[in-house]
Nucleic acid binder design. Structure first.
Lengths: 348, 348
DNA sequence: TAACATAAGGCAATCGTTTGTCCAGATCAA
DNA sequence: TTGATCTGGACAAACGATTGCCTTATGTTA
């Protein structure tokens, strides 16, 4: 329904191509000042904007990116998306959002649909290890960047943080507080964060000279419910752990509710460390000690890698790895929840 | 880079249009079984998918919708988006997400860009009262549905809940508990939810025969910080309110932190009711009594209205209004936080 | 005055699909 | 044998913007 180049041309009495050149400021165009200003006036008056579809067909670019994540209601991914949009919007790109709920089938379906739509690039944060979808993206030569999780090592541009190090620091923190039976609510072995955080946990124990008890590692997955079930199992052992390192914050929340149900106090009876530092972490009582993951920055950086790749027409295969940072709160050390403590922020 | 119809045609030795008809199952096509099966085999083998841009240009439809919201890191809008995607994806649509951060300028810019992209429809949840952007959508005849907030009464298809009623029920709840000095952390008068919830609050007071004290209404906006500042002002009055009805949950969270700082216990010294029932509400301690807003259902319903509108080519101008529901938790009534109470869910 | 240069735009192909129309050959009836 | 009908597809015109090349009219130079 919006006005087309042809209609404008008929109104000015010139050819459509001339309008196009004026609108795009073609430097090679020689045109009389009078005609130019008539055209420019009309462009302003009609608020002409070229039809993006036609433009896309001709120029072979859509100015659209896609973000594929497990679930945007997870704050980590919501922040990631914001980062992408904040990076893409100023450069003229729109962003399509796709949720997979962790299903490889839905992921495949989404990618197929995005490919048909010819988005200029894809940011993927929902991959499994050795993910067929990623190989497919590579094969189709669709510019893409993996975020947070990766698939096959080193083959794709990637933005994330050092999960091994993060898990190690978290575990060392617990060890330093005197804990000797430290459990791990683990992620699936099919997801890179699951594998790497478990590895970091084990490495920290080894460096500390602690023998790793296989019973202390239970697979909880990334949701509250799994965390609760895993914690129940851990706390029903004869020789209970005194501390839990959870693969992410939601699993840690599951641990909170079980501890509460069993009447165990955090951190005195059970210390808990999470991962991601979602907004909820500082609102829990006590606040949840956790490893900060700069999701928003991930999004910005991933977009930068992606757009550079698109605009330069080559694969940089760059990997950007952030150093994780431990945020200590009341779930491991009493008295650290300063921001909420009455005395600390009393203004009177 | 993907294969085109023309290339396929060359491989089978027929005209591109024939491939197209086979791929689209054109009922009027007369073709020999042999040729048909050769073409079908090739289509499967190459996993041919038509170029969505070319298709869009020809068919004047992109199979893309857009969702424009203030901020996806707000759980309400994240859930809304999921609803939209869940409604749109099975019908073959992709969804572009745009965040405005409440800025009319960014909203306008996004809508302009979406229009240039020729999305098939827009779901808008970030409107102000008498929003120029909405008029513009109407003028451009772009199918759209307003969600949660509306702009000019009745002119556009709308999905939301009865904000006056919700606010009324919330206020009546507080009145029923014996509160007589009930304050309101209000939204901006430029946003429909702000106006309507304030109206519901006032109506409840009036019906109860309570005189409304203008000092008890302070504009906090929809963020934690505003809620905290508003609460500070309310609690510094000589005749303090004993209860607060907040325009949304985040403002209520601000009230929590101020109450805590001042050493006031919730609900004994101060009762608090929020609005939206974001996931955080049940995690606060005590749990936040709030009015449930079915954001996910909003998204699904809005998508239905939008797609019906698009596919039937006419403006239904339907309005779907959900009845809100009060969720009572510990911030108004002690002992209602059952899901977390030790005794209630102890399994041993 | 003829050849040439320059200014100011026009022409038409192209991107990949879709779809109304047309056509050549085969088959059939008379 | 001559039309008429049917089969099995081919042709080409869109959709709207971009862009390399061409054309026309005017002015300049030899």
């Amino acid at each position: 329904m919006p006005i087309t180049l042809k209609q404008l041309a008929d109104r000015v009495g010139v050819h459509a191509s001339t309008i196009s050149r004026v609108a795009n400021n073609d430097p090679g165009l020689r045109i009389s000042p009078a005609t130019r200003s008539r055209i420019e006036a009309l462009l302003r008056e009609t608020e002409y904007r070229p039809n993006g579809i036609a433009r896309g067909l001709k120029l072979q670019q859509t100015l659209a990116l896609a973000v594929v994540i497990p679930d945007v209601t997870n704050p980590l991914f919501a922040a990631l998306f914001r980062g992408v949009e904040d990076g893409a919007s100023p450069r003229g790109y729109n962003v399509v959002l796709c949720n997979t709920d962790g299903s490889p089938d839905r992921q495949r379906a989404h990618l197929a649909s995005l490919t048909a739509r010819r988005v200029d690039g894809v940011i993927l944060a929902s991959t499994f290890l050795r993910d067929p979808s990623v190989r497919w993206l590579r094969q189709q030569r669709i510019p893409h960047v993996l975020v947070n999780r990766f698939s096959d090592d080193g083959l794709d541009p990637f933005v994330g943080s050092d999960d091994v190090m993060g898990a190690k620091v978290a575990t060392q923190h617990l060890y330093g507080l005197g804990h000797r039976r430290i459990a791990h609510l683990a992620g699936q072995p099919t997801v890179s964060t699951g594998v790497l955080r478990r590895r970091g946990y084990l490495a920290a124990l080894a460096e500390a000279g602690l023998k790793a008890d296989p019973e202390l590692v239970v697979e909880s997955g990334y949701v509250e419910d799994g965390g609760a079930r895993g914690t129940e199992r851990l706390l029903s052992m004869r020789d209970r752990p005194t501390a839990i390192f959870a693969v992410n914050d939601m699993a840690a929340v599951g641990a909170y509710s079980v501890a509460r149900r069993l009447g165990l106090r955090i951190p005195d009876d059970l210390a808990v460390v999470g991962y991601n530092n979602i907004p909820l972490a500082r609102r829990l009582i006590p606040g949840l000690t956790t490893v900060h993951v700069p999701a928003h920055e991930f999004g910005i950086m991933a977009t930068r890698l992606l757009l550079d790749q698109i605009e330069s027409q080559q694969r940089p295969a760059r990997q950007v790895v952030f150093q994780p940072e431990l945020v200590v709160r009341g779930s491991t050390v009493v008295g650290t929840d300063v921001e909420l403590a009455p005395a600390a922020s009393m203004r009177e």
